[in-house]
Write a protein that binds this DNA or RNA. Sequence first.
RNA 1: GCCGGGAUGGUGGAAUAGGUAGACACGCAAGACUUAAAAUCUUGUGGCCAUCUGGCCGUGCGGGUUCGAUUCCCGCUCCUGGUACCA
Length: 946
Amino acid sequence: MHKALIIFYFCGHYKKAIKKLIMAEYNFREIEQKWQHNWKEKGTFKAAVDQKRPKFYSLDMFPYPSGAGLHVGHPLGYIASDIVSRFKLLKGFNVLHPMGYDSFGLPAEQYAIQTGQHPALTTEQNISRYTEQLKNIGFAFDWDREVRTSDPAYYKWTQWIFMQLFSSYYDLEADKALSISSLVARFEQEGNGQVKAVCDEHTPAFTAAQWKAFSTNEQQQLLLHYRLTFLAETTVNWCGALGTVLSNDEVKDGFSERGGHPVERKKMMQWSMRITAYADRLLKGLDQLAWSEPIKEMQRNWIGKSIGAEVVFAVKGSNQKIQVFTTRVDTIYGVTYLALAPESDLATELITDSERTTAEAYIQQAKNRSERDRMSDVKTISGAFTGSYAINPFNGEEIPVWIADYVLAGYGTGAVMAVPAHDERDYNFATHFGLEIRQVIEGSMENGSFPGKGGIVINSGNLTGLTMKEAMNTCIAFLEEQGIGRGKVQYRMRDAIFTRQRYWGEPLPVYFKDGLPYLIEEKDLPLVLPEVDKYLPTEDGAPPLGRAKDWTYTTETGTYPLELSTMPGWAGSSWYFFRYMDPSNTNSFADKDKTDYWGAVDLYIGGSEHATGHLLYSRFWTKFLYDIGAVSIDEPFQKMINQGMIQGRSNFVYRIKGSNTFVSLGLKDNHDTSAMHVDVNIVHNDQLNLEKFKAWRPDLANAEFILEDGKYHCGAEVEKMSKSKYNVVNPDDIIERYGADTLRLYEMFLGPLEQFKPWNTNGIDGVYKFLRKLWNLYHPQNGAFVVSDLPANKEELKALHKAIKKMEEDMANFSFNTSVSSFMICVNELTSLGCNKREVLEPLAILVSPYAPHIAEELWALLGHSDSITKASFPEFQEAHLVESNFEYPVMINGKLRAKLDLPLTLTVPEIEKAALADAQVQKWLEGKAPKKVIIVPGKIVNLVV
RNA sequence: GCCGGGAUGGUGGAAUAGGUAGACACGCAAGACUUAAAAUCUUGUGGCCAUCUGGCCGUGCGGGUUCGAUUCCCGCUCCUGGUACCA
């Protein structure tokens, strides 16, 4: 080509020559721009309700628009969902495939604190960058449906949902959320004695008369015990450096997930969401979801349901009672001590004078140890005796009460009945302090404690001889009869804290009157985030909204202060999938007709790191919206795929210490070198581009090299993608060099979607070559487009239909990488067959269009179609083209492949056997002996045993 | 500790209702074209042995079931994700 170019250049015809070359070659730049423009102009991916077609809702977890821009890992999931969406379009589905931004969040606010720039501004800039990057990849998104959680038109409805939660309580009889007004009506009728509702632990009982006699303030105070979102004093994770409260899943090992600042436990007045009311439904709902088992398991563990019993122990010589939760009430006769959490008030109260010095010192020591220390130091056993004794209600025995830091204040009742014989921790504790170990389940104690869940109860009064289940039922019946306990279900999951002391979030639609919270009126939504002079807490420690002027709300009775905290990051993302269905509605969060039509998300793709946060909160809000009749589904995401993270692959160069000379990887051990990260963008196939390296930094301009075979080989390591490791790869660079279609194909070709894998561009040339081969199939003669209308022959149709079959199977399994190979095989075969028949090339273009949409559209247009290829139908697979008449049987003798035999598939087993035994190779191996055993699987294998 | 997922050539990976291990691609090597390089094309490429026909070994390690095991079972090792004293 280049030679031709040079000749034309000298002839003065170079302009014409260049034009001809461009026409002839696969020019991805021109093609991709053309079609991206065309899709936008024609609104190709605009979705609308259409009752005549089946719907398919394909959703990606929307990104937080960070300042670093989109890196090569982001599009992985988007490409996969885009392929599925385009495939479903070809299959005749009405596809909803939207994209938007989770645009409230900490980084923009931290940046605002540092620079004084309004977070809205930086967020806007970041979104523009993301949008541009995404558009360059050619996704089939309906951009008209874009949502942004920080847009007042959007968060108006986040606030609205909050108001519905505030106005609801969870009724256990109806097993759903009901309105607070219906609860008030019941209180007026009969008090709360008969009301079975999810409420705070210490909710007092009252009669209808008492209720009516309460002041408004008292009534409001009581209702907070029932509301699904409520204000209460809670122990929270307080991060001083960030100046805010964090949820459990935002804290990692005692440090904030974002920023890595230390986090402490602190009691504060906070808004919470009563997600525990939905614990059981969240658990049960998992069964019907097509999610990966590990993710479901993570949610189950997070919810942490334990079925057991609550037992009340009296304290000897005192009115105090100790309440414990146990899952093994059947082992009650094996209890030899009780253990209390050091934080519990009861522990302090039960200390007797004789033990005061040691016990109080222990409590102090336990409190001083950070949560982190206590967690990491599992091996050390510590505790202190209170001096008090409790009475076992089953046998009246006196048992010592201890304080132990293995008991957590935050779970159950903060008190444990210890059964050393059948619980490992209790066993270790009892052994350490010389406490009694009493076996009550049949079995051997040789290896220490054992749970003995299948064994028979022994040494246990009237429980002796029963199974675990029988004993438990007997115990619970006794406890309930005596009024000293009951069967109880305990959850590990806590209510979710719903406030952050930050600026860049949704304001809560709440004002305070006499210190009690009230909702603002619906007509005043959205409550727009006010302007502030600084994004920092006020002088007296109030959240940034405390700086706003006139942050008040006026009603008929007066003007009141508004809530200063804002909602957490997960608020806006807990319902965005509904907003996409009707993004510009101003009368409701989404029209019911539309949410009914689009229903649940049919395919949700995103990272597994959201397993216990976003995915749980979204399910919770969806169930709530279902309860109040706002939507008709109670599970938002039917099918979910978790794509693996793309890790960075760093490259290294080796500098001889104290010099500016760099040694190639294979020779570095001959010198005293130190490794240095080098920008992966100036390395190709692990070979360093020396010129670019010299230009990379001023101090490297004079760098010298010791090469291997004239090349500099770099070292490599897999690490997280990060700026400081110079291993961040932007999709932009790849698109610039190879085009979006190559990027899309390559990200899929890299390996299974769900697998974690390092990014490398080592194989990218292969898929780029594939696209050029594909293009050349349609341009066989000197780059001119030529397609024949002659009928395709058998081989050509076989090559095509193999690919059709494979793609359909792969689509069902989300195995995108193997589809790319099957396209390669198909194109390779058609190339060697010299096929340019329309009958084959038309379906082929459709086949690859979900993966490489730009080139496919261009070929489709060249084939003479005026409509987008997305309006075409997926080619129908015909088995007939794959039917073979012969099969090459592998003949194995004693399990080893010894010969191959090409035989008609119509042969029967005896015929195959006859043919196999007649074969010269086979006879050589049989050495004249008759086989002992003959195994023949028609169409598969022949195996002879000698 | 507990609960998941995984380990296949120089590299990414393919093949599991048990049936020819290494598809497809990268890399590498040789050749063609070129003054040359790049690009392109052709051929070869798991390891060891052999002059060839070919043989032996081989899917993390050790056993087992089977005519036949990457696939199933038992026991380990290592990597990785989640979770963490949950009573």
